[in-house]
Amino acid sequence: MTSQLQNRLESGIFTVTAELTLPDSSIKDELVETALKLSPYCDALNVTDATSAIPHFSSLAAASILLDNDIEPVMQISARDRNRIAIQGDVLGAHSLGIRNIFCITGDAVIFGDHPDAKPVFDLDSISMLAAIEKMTKDGCFMSGRKITPKPALFLGAAANPFAPPQSYRPHRTVKKWRAGASFFQTQFCFDLQIMKSFTEKLIELCNGKPPPILAGLGPLKSSRMARWLRDKIPGVSIPDHIIERMEKYPQKDQAQVGLEISKETTENLKLIRGISGIHIMAYKWEQAVKDIVEDTGLSKNKRLP
């Protein structure tokens, strides 16, 4: 079994992934129900690992449940909560369950979550985690050098944030992650196409014309209030003033529709940017948005190339 996401990205087809909001319950059906709302419109779903440092349903278990329902998962592993011993064990376990896409992130700091008194681990960072898992897949051994037979075959992903300072370093950092083992990237919310464009241009240059696939992050905004909150409270999110001003021209009840329009326009523009291989939609508890964006931008599955 290989990663369908990998096949798709390698064949150059515009790809859609989305983030699945994991439930705060131990009931499998709740998770499956949400996932099935998204899966017809996506090529793979990301299952997050205690995003924002708030505990939710485990990403490993969620990824396995998605596979049981014929949905391809992208399993996130955060370096915040696990040391190198736990991470390597989880990777093998995930592979045995059929999980092929692993997404390595450093993780949000614990003080942003609802357990600010927790001990942050950060034994590895995203890049050393990528390098460790790459070693498992390429060399067939643990970080210690102990053999793994047979070698797990995995498709590794990582995050990129072209919008955060130091912006001129961001393409270099992405290349570093690529060299460490990441084969695809998902970015932070993209609202500024100009920055995205200069990011991919530089990336293409640094990779001698053959950059790794980049899935641009898309965050449909429900209201101008939410936009302000995201911009001011979530580190690394940058929303230009003109986006917020455009939403504020409309009454509260119509703002979600404007937010969707902005996402659709962004998608259409992203399709034209060289180096962008698809979109990654992060619509928190708003599954309908994923459907609308995908259908209205001509990306729905039946319209796509096989």
């Binding site: 450093t106 003080i111 960072d125 995050a159 955060a164 300072p165 130091p166 950092r173 690394g236």
Partner: peptide, 30 residues
Amino acid sequence: CPKEIRNGPCGGVRTDGTCELDPKMTCVWV
């Protein structure tokens, strides 16, 4: 770096180049 990242800045650097965890501190990677 509060996350002890030895391989570059995290994605949370504030627009003014300060640390997401401490707005008074410039990100060590900036």
